[in-house]
Computed example of a mutant assay.
Amino acid sequence: MSKKIRVLVADDQTLVRTGFRVILEAAGDIEVVAEADTGNEAIRQAQLVEPDVILMDIRMPELDGLSATEEILRHPDPPTIVVLTTFDQNEYIYRALRVGAAGFLLKDAPSTRLIAAVRAAATGDSLIEPSIIQRLVERFVEPAQPKGLPEELTSLTERELDVLRLIARGLSNAEIAAELVVAETTVKTHVARILAKLGVRDRVQAVVVAYETGCVTRNPRG
């Protein structure tokens, strides 16, 4: 039997934590090993139980989820953190990208999306709601109109640029593979090379580069 994905759920609402636990543990390959109702408790539990993935709410008492995320990611070999957000929290999303969150999930997302996000995070992939990306870009990224390929992207091949644009649309590795009609392992190789060439930690930060350089415009299919 394969090892279960160990998850810490950090949210100040008991019903939310309970609901997430029920949904995730029903998947069979996921185990909720701890819960936290404050940012400080999330930090403590992360050190205590060493989860693979943390679902981190933004607004929590004592210490907010983004400050907790930043602190947890300072430690060696940290877990992957997926930020839980709602549509009224746009102002926090860009900061979450910068501190190192590896994905975003709407708190009212379908159960299948929640499970997919945890599985993706556990394998080094990430799942970002396309609607969140679009709202992020509209709020925080100035539309760039580069003349030719921006310097940051000159080392990428044409196929890597294609993959980067699909990452920026919020597609997972499996979805990119289907779009390009290639194997998922091929996509993983492209993603790894893109991150290395751009000098970014994860694919979420690659999304920021894609929009800031104008590689992707505010129209996600542009």
Rank of each mutant, 00 (worst) to 15 (best):
L136V: 15
I93E: 03
I81R: 02
H75C: 09
A117P: 10
R113L: 08
I115C: 05
L84T: 08
I132V: 15
L114S: 02
A96K: 00
V83M: 14
G65Y: 00
R135N: 13
R113V: 15
D52K: 00
L63Y: 04
A68P: 04
D64R: 01
L84P: 06
F87Y: 15
V137K: 04
S111E: 12
A68C: 06
M56P: 00
F104R: 03
L66D: 02
I81V: 15
M60D: 06
L84I: 09
R98C: 13
I132Y: 11
A102V: 10
L63W: 06
A117G: 11
L84M: 15
D64C: 00
D108R: 05
I133K: 10
L66H: 02
F87W: 12
A116G: 09
V137W: 08
A116P: 06
I81D: 03
A117I: 11
I54E: 05
E129N: 15
A120C: 15
I72L: 03
Q89H: 08
E62H: 10
M60Y: 05
V137T: 08
A96M: 00
D77G: 09
I133V: 15
A109C: 06
I93H: 12
V53N: 01
L136I: 14
I115P: 08
V118F: 06
A121I: 11
D88S: 13
T80H: 13
L136H: 13
Q134T: 14
D125H: 09
L66F: 02
S131K: 12
A96C: 03
L84A: 09
V83C: 12
R119F: 05
Y94R: 12
L114D: 05
E71D: 13
A96I: 00
A102C: 05
V137G: 06
V53K: 04
P78V: 01
A122W: 04
E62G: 07
V118S: 04
L106W: 07
A101V: 08
S67A: 14
T69G: 02
M56A: 06
R113F: 07
V82K: 02
V137H: 04
L84E: 06
R98H: 14
Q89C: 08
G65F: 00
